[in-house]
């Protein structure tokens, strides 16, 4: 599904990703952990096509197609979805209008007939229920006046509506209380199937306890320095990241 090779990317002249390799197969859940500033969010932004981030080297293939030649919206229509660490407030554009435009664009790209307003509204209400946002939120401006947790749940709501192939969750668990965390994890789990893949960026093991990833990677200084199975997460929680950096063979100097 996703194949990243030797990815080097920068923002404002500063190189953040310094040769990242990652392969995600259909149906897999990959967790990415790592210290602050290691490039976790940058990876999500680069994948989504955010313009300020410049790819200097390397390749990204998404379902065999070169992702780097695609516009932001083309990537989304191809099935890539990024749940943001800090979802934006857009006053004046209602959630409903925003969702309808996004769903219409998706269906058009897939060659499916557009939903009628009635169908769409009932689907949107269902999605609200799933993330426990009151349906009145649909009428409000996108994330306008939402709490941090409500914004994150709203991103998950979009994920439920858009049915992407690859979901990147960028610290979706930060700022959520335990109940909301469980709710988000349940939503994600409900979307898991043999075809859909997830990249979950997180600082905490707690989300991973619910999600049970297939792989855990440690990103440090713009590279993946260790990959392992689900048991790596509790190890990291216990020992931190420093011991990894000190392992022989790493170019990192202390």
């Amino acid at each position: 599904m996703l194949s990243i090779k030797n990815l080097k990317a920068s923002i404002a002249g500063k190189t953040i990703l310094k040769g990242l390799d990652l392969t995600v197969n259909p149906g897999e859940v990959h967790a990415i952990m790592g210290p602050n500033g290691s490039g976790k969010s940058t990876l999500g932004y680069v994948l989504s096509g955010r313009e300020a981030y410049i790819v200097e080297e390397g390749s990204i293939l998404f379902e065999g197609v070169d992702l780097l030649t695609m516009d932001i919206e083309e990537r989304a229509l191809a099935g890539l979805f990024l749940a943001f660490q800090y979802p934006l407030e857009i006053p004046g554009v209602s959630n409903l209008e925003f969702l309808k435009a996004a769903v219409d664009a998706q269906r058009e790209a897939r060659g499916e007939p557009l939903m009628s307003s009635k169908e769409f509204l009932s689907a949107a209400r269902e999605a609200c229920k799933a993330v426990r946002l009151p349906t009145e939120f649909l009428k409000r401006g996108v994330n306008e006046g939402f709490s941090g947790g409500e914004k994150k749940r709203n991103d998950i709501l979009q994920m439920l509506m858009l049915q992407p192939k690859l979901c990147i969750l960028d610290e979706t668990d930060s700022g959520l209380d335990i109940d909301a965390l469980k709710l988000v994890a349940d939503c994600v789990n409900s979307q898991r199937d043999a075809k859909r893949s997830f990249i979950v960026v997180t600082h905490y093991q707690r989300l991973l306890d619910y999600l049970k990833p297939d792989y855990v990677h440690v990103l440090s200084e713009g590279k993946i320095i260790k990959s392992g199975g689900p048991s790596l997460a509790p190890e990291l929680e216990e020992q931190g990241y420093a011991w990894l950096a000190r392992q022989p063979g790493e170019e990192k100097s202390l």
Partner: peptide
């Protein structure tokens, strides 16, 4: 620009995203 990126990241085309944000400016 950030709002534009957010809308596009959900598959909404550049032009439509512009229209939505422009109208949103008075719709507020």
């Amino acid at each position: 620009q950030l709002a534009l990126y957010y809308l596009r990241s959900r598959g909404i085309g550049l032009e439509q995203a512009h229209l939505m944000l422009n109208f949103g400016f008075i719709n507020e």
